[in-house]
Every structure is written in C-alpha cells, then in structure tokens.
Design a protein around this nucleic acid. Sequence first.
RNA 1: GCGCCCGUAGCUCAGUUGGAUAGAGCACGAGCCUUCUAAGCUUGGGGUCACAGGUUCGAAUCCUGUCGGGCGCGCCA
Length: 576
Amino acid sequence: MTLYARFAAHIDAVLDSLEAEGQLPAGLERRNVAVEPPRDAAHGDLATNAAMVLAKGAKTNPRALAGLIAPKLDELAEVERTEIAGPGFINIRLSPTIWQDELRAILVGGEAYGRSALGQGQRVNVEYVSANPTGPMHMGHCRGAVVGDALAALLEHAGYAVTREYYVNDAGAQVDTLARSAWLRYREALGESIGDIPEGLYPGDYLVPVGRKFAEEFGDRYAAAPESEWLQLFRRRTVDAMLELIRSDLALLGIHHDLFASEADVQASGAADRVLQTLRDKGLIYEGQLEAPKGETPEDWEPVELTLFRSTQFGDDQDRPMKKSDGSWTYFGADAAYHLQKAGKADQLINIWGADHSGTVKRIQAGVRALTDGRVELDVKIVNMVRLFRAGEPVKMSKRSGNFVTLREVVEEVGKDVVRFIMLTRRADAPLDFDFAKVVEASRDNPVFYVQYAHARISSLHRKAKEEGFDLSGESDLSLLDEDELSLVKVAAQYPRIVEAAAMAHEPHRIAFYLNDLAAAFHALWNKGNDDPSRRFLLAQSPELTRARLELASAIGQIIRNGLGLMGVAAAEEMQ
RNA sequence: GCGCCCGUAGCUCAGUUGGAUAGAGCACGAGCCUUCUAAGCUUGGGGUCACAGGUUCGAAUCCUGUCGGGCGCGCCA
C-alpha cells in the first residue's frame, strides 16, 4: 500500500468518525476527496482537499469543516502537524520517521517497489505495432512499438494481466502486391533480368533474399506460370518471411508479442459473418448508400448499395460499410470481428494506432460497444509522427522509392536504450522530433543522458566506497539524514503513485518525465558536496553518516532502475 | 464541408484528470572545478495558459463559440 493510499484510508476513517459524532451528514459523495503531495513543498508533505469537496454537502464552509478534520489527523502518530491553508486545504507534515521507513521500504522492495495491485488481475489486451507485413520496420512504426510495449509493462506492473498482441493485416490487396513483388524477385533469382521494379510494386531489396529462397525451393516451377497458380502460395510465404523480418526488428528493441493474430484467419474462421449476424439481430445493419465524401469529391464516385453498420448510433459521424459491393469484407468489417475476438478474452482493450488512423477510431469503438453491449472498453491511443533530424537538418524519407529510414539503422546507430527512452519523452499524441545528434549528446538537454548519468554516479559511488574500504554491513541509522536528504526520499517515494497514475491514464511518458525530475533532485544533492565537503556522500571521518547516505543513494538508484525497466531501458553503470 | 488532436516563457515541452503564487530544459545575465565524474549545480530576468463567454468555493484543465496549426475523410489498408 502506498503512503498515499494509507492516508486516503486515514482520512476516510476520520470522516467516518465525524459522521458517527453527527458532525457530518452521512452518505456524502467522497469520490473526489484526494490526498496528494502539494505542488509547493513548503506546504508540507501531503495535502487533502476533503474539506473543500465536502463542505457544500455538509452545509458549512470549507475552512470550518477543515477545522473539524485536521485535529483528528493530528492525533495520528505519523503526523507531525497539520495546518489549514488557502480556501480550505489541510496540509499535513509527516514525521521524519515516515520518510526513513519509506527509504527502507524502497531498499527492501527492490525491483518490486512500485508494483501495485491496482488492476486486480483484470485482463487487458494491448495491440500495438500491427505494421503491414510488407517490409521491414521503419521509423514510422517505431514510436507506437515503444509506447505500446512500455504501456504493456506499465499495466503489468500495476497489477493487470496483459496480453501483447500484433494484428497482421494479411488479407488485403497490398498482400497481392507483396506477393507479385516477391515473384519478380524470384524470377530475378532464377537469372531473369527484371529491369526496374514496375510502378506499384514494392521496390525494396529486402525481397531479394525472399526471391532467392523461393528459387531454391521451387526451382522454375512458377516462373512462367499464370498468377492463379502461385499467388496464394506466394502471399502466404512472403507474409511469413516479412513477419520474421519484423519480429527480428522488434527484437532489436526488446519487443516480443504474445500473439500474432491474422486478419485472413479472422475472415476464414467465419467470425466476420457471425459479427454481421449479431449486429443484424440487434437491428444495426441495413442495406443502403453512402453519400459522396465532402471536400474533394472523387471523380469516380458512384452510389451503390452496401451493407452498412449503424455506427452513428454509437457516436460515429457516418454509418460504415461492413462489406464491399463485391461481397468481400471491408477492413472495418474484419476489424470488428477481430475486436470481438479480442474482447472475448479481455476485460479491457487498448489499441496503439498511428495518427493516420485517427479518423477510424469512432467506428471501431462503436463496433466494440455494440458487440459487447458496453462490457468491454476500447481505448485507442493515437501515436503521432516522429520527425527525424540530423543536427537540426530534416532527414528526407520517401517510402515510394523504398528509401525510408529503417528501425534497424536507427537502433544500430544510437542504440536500443536511447531509442526507447526518447520515444517516451513526449506525450504520445504530440509530434516528436528525433535528432540523431541530440539523442546521444552528453548534456543536461538530453534526458536519456541525464537520467543515466545519475544512475552511473550512484554506481560509481558504491564502487568508490568499496575501494576505500567503507564498512557497509548491517543496517544504517537513517535518522542521521537531514532535511535535504529526506526531501530526495520524498521525490523517490512518489514513484509508486506515478506508476499507478501513468497506468490508469495509459501514459507511459510520465515515467520518463518523473525520472528526469528524480535525476535532477539527485544531481542537485550531489553537487552540494562541491560547496560544502561535509555534504558529500563518502566521508571517511563519519562512517555512520556515510552508510546512511549510501543507502539513500542505493534507493535512488533502485527507483531509476525500476523506472527505466518499465521503459525497457537498461540502467548504465558508468558513462563512456 | 466534417471528424480527431493541438494552441502554455523567445525556442522545445511538462502540468499529478478541477486545487494554493502555472513549472522544467535550451537560450540570455551572474556565480560555483587542488572533487565521490563540473558530462554537473546554484541564481536572476522572462506568462493575458490563442481569444470570448459559461459551469463553481476554485479553470491551463470541464462546456459553448471564434481564430490559428497538424492529421484524417473513400467499397483503400
């Protein structure tokens, strides 16, 4: 139980007793009562808004109600003193032993410190990456991959049962294009001269080894055969090869999915038909026509009868087709079936999507709501684009020519840890600039460096202590730590709260920002030793104080490791 | 035309889901290295939280509208 949860319970108990004494009407809505660290540390360690939230219902004014609550909090052993401030906040200053205990708790908890049971084992399915299996991963996919993976880890940490899933779009026309492109490479591998790759096919040379493999396996059996003889086979086999490629790219980032779900399988299983029938039974399907899209009207627009889903009943702007006029499934039709499949095994769904799919969020949420009768919630996190720079100059990319920056190139240049960290240094839905020069810069401006540097300092501190023969056995006396040192503990003690809040909000970037703050607080304390040598961590003349300070440093190091671990980043023992 | 996201210091961005005097970094000014790593730290100036209304004890945060920017719109995937 976190410190904050403990105090929330204390306040609850105080309110109960006020009710029992008849000082407070029973049954007031307490949902908005919060216990938080105040923004300004001078206000104390904790603050509660209880009096302000409840005053109206209690038909009194906030400060008067605070006057009833505060004395009861004062009676707690953990509380040093309270004061009523501003419009009716109750500020609580905790006794120093609380922070000494919390420091100990961090050390005892180790890797587990910050885990919580918030999720109560609820099943969450996080679907992320889901890049089309038509080529290697490039930078466009990278951010969603990292955000999804960090979110999955975060939720796991917060007590959810997480499935990491990848949806393979292996049913659409682009897979035909892929198969034809591979067939060309296959003929090339057989010695044919294929010239330039025709417009509309995938030109990337990652298909060359695939063609070679096919040539070895099939000989010239399909070289001159009509498409009907090889297309299905080449589709399946090329998709497999691409998935292998993608999996190895993801592995470079340390990302491993539990499940790869195939769109083609979903369609073949009849799930889409069942979904259509379910919706039909609910009266949500009709045959009709769509209006031409507004804005630029396509020249080839013709109204036709389509099988439409009444997604407008669930907040969409337009009803959406489930089936095309030729009877095949639309992407949405199959996707609805896929989401129902996921919903059958989860209590909560999360999709990580690129910004280019933001327009389709409403319809799929409508579909999930209709199909699960609102039982399962679908959150779609939109991940915005990454703009690549090299020392301030934009990096030119063109997918058409196959000249895009691959994930592999980036990881090989700057390293997995840097990529993962940087991808989490901005809110997911905001665009992010990635500058190859800046992300490896050793400066305050680079959060990866800055956080790693704090950890490296802590590691070097312990190495040094060992070298200099400090006795580190046994428990230290943490009451030797002064106010500045305990204030660092206070920052560290926020970690479990940050994890829970980030998990609830589905916002892994909060961990990165928090670590940056924690590192800043540590660097600041460290540097006090510059002005005042008695503030240094290692003091030959005070072994007891040294031990206490080393424990403090260990705890900070632990939090940094835990936080970085959530982000999938390894902590540095030393900086090169 | 419509939808989604966004608009916070000169620049790049946070802002604990409605809390107190809105915070960081960069840049600019002033300091701190015979050291456990100064790759850092301290400190100063810098704000109409796009604008206008509304909701309430209280709004950068919620609602409505306006202006500006990004992404998108299809029987594509």
